[in-house]
Design a protein around this nucleic acid. Sequence first.
DNA 1: CACATCTATGCACACGTTAACAATAGTCTT
DNA 2: AAGACTATTGTTAACGTGTGCATAGATGTG
Lengths: 334, 334
Amino acid sequence: MSATIKDIAKLAGVSHTTVSRALNNSPLIQEETKERIRIIAEQLDYTPNYNAKSLVLDRSYNLGLFFTTLSNGTSAGFFYEAIRGVNSVIRDRYQLIVKGIDDYTSFHSITKKSFDGIIIVSQSDDDGPIIEHIANKGIPLVVLNRPVDTAGVLNVLSDEEQGAFHAGCYLVNQGHKKIALIEGRKGFKSAQNRKDGFERAMGHYGISVPAAYRMPGLYDLESGHTAMQHFLSLEERPTAVFCCNDEMALGAIKAVFEAGLQVPKDISVVGFDDTVFAAYVTPALTTVRRPIEQISKEGALRLLGNIENKLHTTEQLLLRTELIVRESVQLLQP
Amino acid sequence: MSATIKDIAKLAGVSHTTVSRALNNSPLIQEETKERIRIIAEQLDYTPNYNAKSLVLDRSYNLGLFFTTLSNGTSAGFFYEAIRGVNSVIRDRYQLIVKGIDDYTSFHSITKKSFDGIIIVSQSDDDGPIIEHIANKGIPLVVLNRPVDTAGVLNVLSDEEQGAFHAGCYLVNQGHKKIALIEGRKGFKSAQNRKDGFERAMGHYGISVPAAYRMPGLYDLESGHTAMQHFLSLEERPTAVFCCNDEMALGAIKAVFEAGLQVPKDISVVGFDDTVFAAYVTPALTTVRRPIEQISKEGALRLLGNIENKLHTTEQLLLRTELIVRESVQLLQP
DNA sequence: CACATCTATGCACACGTTAACAATAGTCTT
DNA sequence: AAGACTATTGTTAACGTGTGCATAGATGTG
């Protein structure tokens, strides 16, 4: 069917060894011979069989890109930016294999032979076992988006606690005192960090957040909607709500409008993530931007570095978040 | 390093052939022997080397999932749903390799050896060459989202023309006569189809759409915003605007609010795609839903069918779109 | 001129797996 | 009891590529 180095060898009147060396641009082969062989390869439309190469070179040319889940809980924008970032770095050097961790029934098939390196975009503590497995197998690994301290594992993430802290401070500085919180999906590390940052800000200014001002959420529109309905039903409504992501913030805003009220006039809303539509909803959403694409780029770069230099550095990179002030927060007069 | 069938063979006191057969559950091997071998394999934590398997079986266990572009023009939600749909079908039988077609400098490396099958999520006529290439190489192929008529290629898409037609008719039936259009990204087949469906609806009711009521768009928030600003500046403003996707519709709505006007009271807006946030913006967006996830599922299923039965059927599957009526269109009194 | 050195190439094997064919022992048939 | 057949296992080669070692010719050296 398709041409092999042996076919080329026959036509060129040399051994297949010479062809192999010529096409890999080995200094052992005469320039003239190389050129002749290259031309024949071109004519035959030769493409190396990567499976054979992999077998003998013990490299798969595969990079795994694993998400905590593909089926629920991962927001589309997040997913997209992560893949984009990684893809822009690897170009054609590796194949990018995308998987959801929760699709694995067993990690047995994850071996050094099938992955040259793995990028885990982790959103949950439940990812611990797979991280252990990969590290044990000695596969180069970078974990994005969530802190890990396993030795030999790279780690790139944004400082979400700090981002939430800034958002909380901002609300207080705008004059808010009755501030409510819609939490993220339980078990997701980000949910914990964002909550922590928010709490720290409140603590910093000595503002207490009663139980009625705290609602659980699932990072989706619907749970934001429900949570806000609850806040609106309270006798003493909060004047501002910090939502642990933009989708929930959107759902929350929707609930406010449905109740015949206005954002930010009657109630202020802050989100987290700066998703693409945050700037375009009405009112434009004040939110915390985390540099997903940059995180995935930096992560991929460092991973490739470790792969190519056969290192297993343990490095943690923390990228700053940024508060994006738009129109969804009202300045309260004292 | 890692165990091979030969290691198992030694421990079991049989030939490596017997081990291979046992682990592949061949009927040639005695049940008792199989069991013994399985236990040893388990103890050694044996995993087959897929590169070696691929080499001899001439199968890669790879499925390509190619998008027109990863870097711009593909909406995040679209991307996400497509991967989800395909992933839910293939589970652990194949590895899913995600690529942007515009990342390829040459299609040379796309061979039968490296891909058992390919799914192209096509958004542009520019994808013609790669489709030709893949079909010529005899690699099983399904093209999603855009019509193709190459022999031996599967094709699954939604009837967007019909969807846009219904949306257009709906606007007219709600009493609108001055209807404007924000077009999709030039070169994208969907842009043409949606425009065609809209035009057909207008033609059907004898409504003419002047040049000033047509604006180009790029499928992003910003171009929708710009286009709507243009419409608002006209002496005789349209009463309704059909946007070729939801993102542009969001941008358009934003522009309306900025001008101190209201949707749908002053101007009605219809989108296309029913992205996740369509239901949660204010006002909730009336739009056309196309079943991306279903399309990618159906496509993947049919592709796997063709791969496993070694067929190259030429089949086209057209899935219906659905008009989702929400709150962004005003009923005009005559 | 004899020997060492260098250059360009080939030979043979390895990577881990599957499969065609061969071999052995036991069972059945007449 | 001889031949045919069956069940189980082994021998060997093959997939396509890369590499250590051998080889042959050319060139340099004293």
